[in-house]
Design a protein around this nucleic acid. Structure first.
Lengths: 120, 120
DNA sequence: AATTATGCATAACAAAATTAGGTATTAGGA
DNA sequence: TCCTAATACCTAATTTTGTTATGCATAATT
């Protein structure tokens, strides 16, 4: 290593948010509403943000697949009104970790907010 | 187009934040402190977040280069204490746009916060 | 003398969202 | 009865962005 800047210049636990809050957003919605399916998550995010947060399908579905692959959520398909829905929920043993992740995002946003609103 | 979901399911002006708050963070610091150089921006972000936001060099320098390439900031080199610093500042004609971007991030974070802290 | 801090830069890689396409069913209006 | 909108899933190519790991150079500290 040529210098030591990088020893303290990594994003630590916050690194994941610089590249997106989507995963934590999904976990939060699942934590609050229990079983949800992809389309429903998009709608709920939109609803809770006065129509301003519009998640794209190309983002939400791969994100859900990643969460499942990592063993954080589990899914089950169900036919409702002739259409198949894929419901996701946080695995029981992952709930604490999920809440920690959500709190980390809240904390991170407080830090960013503190910088953005700092007095000159 | 095969369906119409995507007509209203894009991230609109918020899209840039899902993939990082760094650019807005830089603009905010430059807006508040005027001329700053890369290393100084890292230090200031760290200082204003009680040491929790640690920007990496590999992120900050390319980000500054992108901002300059886009004509949003301008730079000038200066030798201070035998070391060359590259100072950046927001172009006069870009200040309003920069502040809008910063406000967009604040607004976006309020929305995310609203979702994360929503009552069940 | 050696290390730490200051200061810049870039390249290979990985992660994640955008963009754009695909399939299928149901509901509602003209 | 069409046609459109809404519901509901999926994936691939591309782009953007950050991480990780380098490299160089000078000043200050131990």
């Amino acid at each position: 290593m040529h210098n030591y800047f990088m020893y303290y210049c990594n994003m630590d636990r916050n690194k994941e948010f610089l590249s997106g809050t989507l995963t934590s957003l999904i976990l939060s919605l699942l934590d609050n509403h229990g079983r949800m399916y992809g389309y429903e998550i998009c709608q709920k995010a939109k609803e809770l943000s006065s129509g301003e947060i519009n998640l794209t399908e190309g983002a939400i579905y791969p994100a859900l697949h990643r969460l499942e692959k990592k063993g954080i959520v589990e899914s089950s398909k169900e036919k409702v009104n002739g259409r198949v829905r894929k419901y996701y929920s946080i695995k029981k043993e992952q709930e604490i970790a999920a809440r920690q992740k959500i709190n980390s995002l809240l904390h991170f946003m407080q830090n960013i907010n503190g910088i953005l609103t700092a007095e000159k």
